[in-house]
């Protein structure tokens, strides 16, 4: 589609209220380089000039809860707390999901894991 959805363009949660999205976009524009600001401002205006337009765009945007944040994978990785030594005292069954998340870290704690479930 020629006209991108403002929520998709800005990569923010379409369920944010007007106030919340203003706060979010304010942070985005303040960090943005000068040549991108006009577009960010235009997107903000599309979402705030008319309430019915905000809803219209929200309905046409892909759901994007916090758990589907658009941040870089590398950033997301650094946000994930690593396993602690307390693991030793907890009986766990790992799933594929955990292993994916832990990646290299999983290798180092593998000896702590009694069972390892491949399926989901």
């Amino acid at each position: 589609m020629k006209n991108e959805n403002p929520f998709d363009d800005l990569e923010i949660d379409p369920r944010l209220s007007g106030r919340e999205l203003t706060k979010r976009i304010r942070k985005i524009i303040e960090k943005a380089p000068a040549d991108e600001r006009a577009e960010i401002q235009a997107n903000w205006e599309k979402l705030t000039l008319r309430e019915d337009q905000r809803i219209h765009h929200a309905l046409l945007a892909h759901p994007r809860p916090e758990s589907a944040s658009a941040r870089e994978v590398s950033t997301l990785r650094t946000n994930v707390p690593l396993p602690t030594s307390k693991l030793q005292n907890t009986a766990v069954s790992l799933t594929r999901a955990d292993v994916i998340v832990w990646d290299e870290a999983a290798v180092s704690v593998q000896h702590l894991i009694p069972r390892y479930d491949q399926g989901k």
Binding site: E66, S67, A68, R71, L76, V80, A97, I100, V101
Partner: peptide
């Protein structure tokens, strides 16, 4: 799907991304 006790939103975000 079982989740470990220390499963956090950060885990979920990364999992979804991957």
């Amino acid at each position: 799907m079982s989740r470990m006790k220390w499963w956090s939103p950060a885990h979920q975000a990364l999992l979804n991304a991957l």
